[in-house]
């Protein structure tokens, strides 16, 4: 905990978004009588990080590690069980009325599946204009902004009259990006923005996102499972396992000298592009445990090749190993 606090304070000055000890439990009920067997899914537990202006934080981990839940908590789709989210110094949890609306305007999202995130019964221009109407942008202004947004994401102006089903997956994802961009947000949550796309389209969308960031200076929270995507897009990386951050560092630190055994395992599991990088390193056995019944001690000890006795008993805390490089592992305490 102490270490987490220091992490925040150090970053807090310059940071746009600060997340502090964020925790979210979902309760699931089983049995005929609803009160029976009430269990808690530990989706996110004591996660802290910060995002500066113009930065991209990559959240990487396998399914069930809580990365999407973090995105939802930041978008206030879900409320946290405990912990705080600070946006430019003010606590998001306490926002009401106009400041809350301003926050929603400043934080936008692009989701994984461009087939389900666009309303099939709305024309593209209506999809793009909806956020503008909600946030009281004048009619003339919104017409011109729809036009400029389409141009920015590389679509033609005459496409505004069409419906989503007339577009391919890559084009739809461009529309989703245009919608997120229409209000000139300061932070965009990208939840697996390219994993539903074809290989040849992924680099197109990733390049577009990077270009837009350079141009407008917004930040990204990039949620992805692919180390390759994270490496290409991020400036900072947080590796998640079963709801907890196991490693948090700048991109160069994590890709040059990963410390946590899980981060290393993700690297060995990553698929090569060229033959020279094919080598069989350590491959993890087993699968991610049930988040409703997480293992004791270090969450990773059931699959960790270097687990010791202490890992089964005590949960390691996130500690700063070198400036800006945090690891939660007993090997590095």
């Amino acid at each position: 905990m102490k270490n987490n606090d220091s992490l925040i304070q150090k970053d807090a000055g310059a940071s746009m978004l600060v997340v502090e000890g964020l925790t979210k439990y979902f309760s699931i009920q089983q049995g005929i009588l609803r009160s029976r067997n009430k269990r808690l899914v530990h989706a996110v537990e004591n996660v802290s990080f910060s995002i500066n202006k113009c930065e991209t934080l990559g959240l990487v981990g396998e399914s069930g590690c809580g990365k999407t839940t973090i995105g939802k908590l930041i978008l206030i789709i879900e409320r946290p069980t405990s912990g705080n989210i600070f946006f430019k110094g003010s606590n998001v949890e306490k926002l009401k009325g106009r400041p809350l609306k301003n926050y929603r305007r400043a934080v936008q999202a692009v989701f994984q599946d461009p087939y389900s995130s666009l309303n099939p019964r709305m024309k593209i221009q209506d999809i793009l204009r909806e956020p503008l109407t909600v946030h009281n942008v004048s009619k003339d202004e919104s017409v011109s902004r729809v036009r400029s947004m389409l141009a920015e994401v590389g679509l033609q102006e005459n496409m505004a009259d069409r419906f989503p089903h007339e577009f391919s997956g890559g084009q739809r994802q461009r529309i989703a990006v245009a919608r997120a961009l229409a209000l000139y947000p300061e932070l965009i949550v990208l939840d697996e923005p390219v994993s539903a796309l074809d290989v040849s389209l992924r680099s197109q969308i990733m390049n577009l996102l990077k270009e837009l960031q350079t141009k407008h200076g917004h930040s990204y929270l990039l949620i992805a499972h692919s180390m390759a995507v994270i490496r290409y897009m991020s400036t900072k990386v947080a590796v998640m396992y079963l709801g907890q951050t196991v490693e948090y560092a700048n991109k160069s630190q994590i890709f040059r000298s990963a410390l946590h055994p899980y981060t290393k395992a993700l690297f060995s599991a990553a698929l090569p592009v060229r033959l020279d990088t094919v080598d069989d390193e350590e491959i993890l056995e087993g699968e991610v445990p049930d988040p409703a019944d997480p293992p004791s001690g270090c969450r990773f000890h059931t699959r960790c090749p270097t687990a010791r006795e202490i890992c089964r008993i005590q949960m390691p805390q996130l500690q700063e190993i070198e400036p800006g490089h945090y690891v939660a592992c007993h090997l590095h305490q």
């Binding site: 290989v199 490496r231 090569p272």
Partner: peptide, 23 residues
């Protein structure tokens, strides 16, 4: 073009040349 457009988890790349258009 496909090989060039793939991001690598093992190397830093500043810019990925992408294939224009769609399949």
């Amino acid at each position: 073009a496909l090989l060039q457009a793939l991001p690598s988890p093992f190397h830093d790349v500043d810019y990925l040349p992408s294939i224009p258009g769609q399949p």
